[in-house]
């Protein structure tokens, strides 16, 4: 057990946990923000994607001790009321089916657009490797493009 001070969605949290505890579980079970999901625990599915600094990170294998001073953003911190361009596009295109994978998809998409504001299909395919069992992939792609255009 060790004490960590981490900043999630611009709020400081003091947590007393095993340094090896993955960030996912610190966020979900210790801090209590459950928008970030567990899907596989081995960085395969992307359901647990958050931003550490500006980078999209699969938090299920990212030990809390590695966070350092980086600021963490989760789906809850993306916008005040769901009006981030990517969230708006997701609603507009009506992407979610069961919805479980979508917070991870959105966090991955936001990071992609930050780095590459007008991605090609190929760029999208390379970055968006999250799994969606419901098969919403084409709408996800459409929403990413809609969000990209909305911001230009």
């Amino acid at each position: 057990m060790a004490a960590f001070s981490i900043t999630v969605n611009n709020k400081k949290h003091q947590v007393e946990v095993d340094p090896k505890m993955p960030l996912l579980w610190v966020i979900r079970d210790v801090i209590g923000l459950t928008g970030t999901k567990y899907g596989c625990g081995i960085t395969q599915c992307g359901a647990c994607t958050v931003h550490v600094g500006n980078a999209a990170v699969r938090s299920c294998m990212f030990p809390v001790e590695s966070v350092g001073d980086e600021k963490i953003t989760t789906i809850e911190g993306l916008s005040e009321s769901g009006d981030h361009p990517v969230q708006l596009a997701w609603k507009e295109i009506d992407v979610p089916q069961c919805g479980y994978c979508q917070s991870g998809q959105i966090m991955a998409a936001v990071a992609l657009l930050k780095e590459n504001p007008s991605p090609t299909d190929d760029d999208i395919h390379k970055t968006m490797t999250n799994i969606c069992r419901c098969g919403t992939y084409n709408r996800i792609k459409k929403a990413i493009k809609a969000a990209a255009t909305a911001r230009v």
Binding site: S79, K91, V95, P96, G99
Partner: peptide, 23 residues
């Protein structure tokens, strides 16, 4: 007509509570 999923807002903001989120 095209009507969007009623839970979209809660889903895209991470507010929606699934069973696994129960505490």
């Amino acid at each position: 007509k095209r009507i969007a999923n009623v839970d979209n807002q809660a889903i895209v903001t991470g507010q929606f509570k699934y069973g696994i989120d129960t505490k």
